[in-house]
Design a protein around this nucleic acid. Structure first.
Length: 271
DNA sequence: CCCGATTCCTGTAGGC
DNA sequence: TGCCTACAGGAATCGG
């Protein structure tokens, strides 16, 4: 389940290998993703030179001189780089070959991902224009969250997972961040002090940074590794640990559905 | 505007 | 062993 650290790890893995290279072939094996892959994508991309691989929220942005390819990995997507002629695996949906020597493959069993071509300025694209700040943006502060949560009655966990508020906080890291900040996930967003929102900001950044660091450990093997992605080395403190003792030593971790998603918290150290 | 519910999809796990 | 069901979740969309 790619969350922001996984997407950023992917960007750092594929970017240096592909930037500056020219597309020599594109094959769409299955266009049925969250949005259909443009039928004319092969013609559209042919001969283009990749200038940069960037990231905005959980979107990867492959930038060319004339436009950009927006890629989202959904919840089961991954990108891999293989040599031409490597056997396709089930659910390898799109292959983009660079310089006839490296193939970028989009693999996505559940097909919640997407691959969209645009020539619009990216900031104005409908997929990107409503997104809130990145977690490391200086705009993302306790004061900002306090202001944005004014009169909001929804659970704080849903609030921080709202991508128009802040991007990159998925279900797993939302539980982890709130645990670290000592805030109960079901507390109404509008009933949390600025000071406590400040703690949430710090916690979100720390959790994402640590997960990113863990992902980075397998970066050098990115191309050939078939093992577990590095971010699984990130130690989850509450997610998936129902019934286990919290690291605070006082509480037993509980699971509760909030906003149709499983949420995990310690009743002793989160309020 | 706000918020909850629903939808897309398939691999995996658990019950029988 | 095999069948069935529940569950996982990002984000768009819809309805109240």
């Amino acid at each position: 389940m790619p969350e922001l650290p996984e997407v950023e790890t992917t960007r750092r893995g594929v970017g240096p290998l592909l930037e500056g290279r020219q597309i020599s072939a594109v094959k769409v094996r299955n266009p049925r993703l969250r949005q259909p892959v443009l039928a004319s994508l092969p013609q559209r991309l042919d001969g283009l030179r990749l200038r940069a691989v960037e990231r905005r929220a959980k979107y990867l942005l492959f930038r060319f001189d004339v436009g950009s390819l927006i890629v989202h990995l959904g919840m089961s997507g991954s990108l891999r780089i293989v040599k031409p002629g490597t056997a396709f695996k089930k659910h390898d949906h799109v292959e983009i070959t660079f310089d006839s020597t490296l193939c970028l493959r989009l693999h996505d069993p559940r097909r919640f991902g997407l691959m969209v071509w645009t020539e619009e300025p990216l900031a104005e694209h409908r997929l990107l224009r409503h997104l809130g700040p990145e977690p490391w943006d200086e705009q993302f502060t306790g004061a900002y969250l306090r202001k944005g949560s004014h009169r909001r009655t929804a659970a704080v966990k849903n609030f921080i997972m709202d991508s128009s508020i802040v991007v990159g906080v998925g279900n797993i890291y939302a539980s982890e961040s709130l645990h670290r900040a000592g805030v109960h996930p079901n507390r109404a967003a509008g009933r949390i002090s600025q000071r406590r929102y400040g703690a949430i900001v710090v916690a979100v950044r720390e959790v994402l940074e640590e997960a990113l660091e863990a992902g980075g450990t397998t970066l050098r093997d990115f191309v050939h590794s078939d093992g577990e992605p590095g971010y699984f080395r990130f130690k989850l403190k509450v997610y998936g640990r129902t019934g286990q003792r919290c690291s605070c030593e006082h509480g037993i971790i509980r699971q509760q559905v909030i906003g149709q998603r499983s949420s995990f918290y310690c009743p002793k150290c989160q309020h």
